[in-house]
Design a protein around this nucleic acid. Sequence first.
DNA 1: CATGTAGTTCAAAAAAACTTGAACACTGTC
DNA 2: GACAGTGTTCAAGTTTTTTTGAACTACATG
Lengths: 183, 183
Amino acid sequence: MPALTLTSKDSSKQVLILDEWELGVIDLFLNAANSIGLPRSYGQIYGLLFCRDQSLSMDEVIKLLGISKGSASQGLRSLRQLGAISSVFEPGDRKERFVAEIRLRKLVGGFLREQADPHLDKGVGRLQQIEALLAKVDDKDSHKRGVRRHEILSGWHRQMSRLLPWVKMIVGKSDRLPQKSSD
Amino acid sequence: MPALTLTSKDSSKQVLILDEWELGVIDLFLNAANSIGLPRSYGQIYGLLFCRDQSLSMDEVIKLLGISKGSASQGLRSLRQLGAISSVFEPGDRKERFVAEIRLRKLVGGFLREQADPHLDKGVGRLQQIEALLAKVDDKDSHKRGVRRHEILSGWHRQMSRLLPWVKMIVGKSDRLPQKSSD
DNA sequence: CATGTAGTTCAAAAAAACTTGAACACTGTC
DNA sequence: GACAGTGTTCAAGTTTTTTTGAACTACATG
């Protein structure tokens, strides 16, 4: 393997540019990421991998999207943490390569696990904190009101905790639903 | 019982200060709002109203939370739009007064209606746009790949569309939900 | 152990989101 | 019409989040 050219452009190399439809998909994911509270660049990265059959290295992601090394590194790490992408090592290659997870159930599950569950957990602490503050309330009416509110919040917390497993279960189940192929 | 001079004239006025537990609740909602992608001030406003039995006017919200007129005005409007608060007019008073909606089902339903549904709707347009871009692709392989991706995205869209009604239905009914025996 | 490749970290820059407040609009009263 | 009470708008200011890129770690190879 001759390593002469630095800016090597081996003709066996796959495309280093994006199709227009790929740009469209990447933009779709950019917006989607944004609207669920993830950085745009995460959406771009996922979108790019989603478009491709072949795994991509960090280098290729950087070149194709024109983002910085830092963004790529952090984005790829977080996306893997979310279970939205996974990495593979081609034998005899030091580079880590990435592919998108395309099972919606996995995506939703990972998102809920990493984003929703922690919030619910923190909620327990917050509720306890409020309970503690309530113990120090002198005024009878205020105390009563506070207790009622605490009860409501506890109920909500319980309901949300029960909802999440259902969501995880429902999404992806429809693979098996009989479908009339339309559209 | 009456607070010291605080530019307030009428001593029959209810508290113009917040109990500690109320601050805790308001902070909880501030964080909750933040984590579902709403401005912090919306959370504060909702949290304040959530704590109170009596309706509050915009003026009172501004004074109690120490936020600006602009924030209060926009926050109250958006929260009402979301169905998270509702307004009432006391007879013989020109001021609009607000109370929090505390039924979780309503809150979740409103949130999904105002936030999730619009995104799904926009998604239709985006998918069509991608479809249009695909029509212009020459390369056979790229086209095929693109079509496959479009199909996947369409499937996801369908599944999410089906999920939302379930969520709306399940929340608020969880007393009667069948349970997965573990936890 | 010097070199080159792969990847991470983090302070500073840039961008996005949020808040503010003064000007404006609307309405009912005198 | 002038005024006072309510509420909205939005340009400018502030805060928060995201991105960048240079310095750094790690590790294989000659």
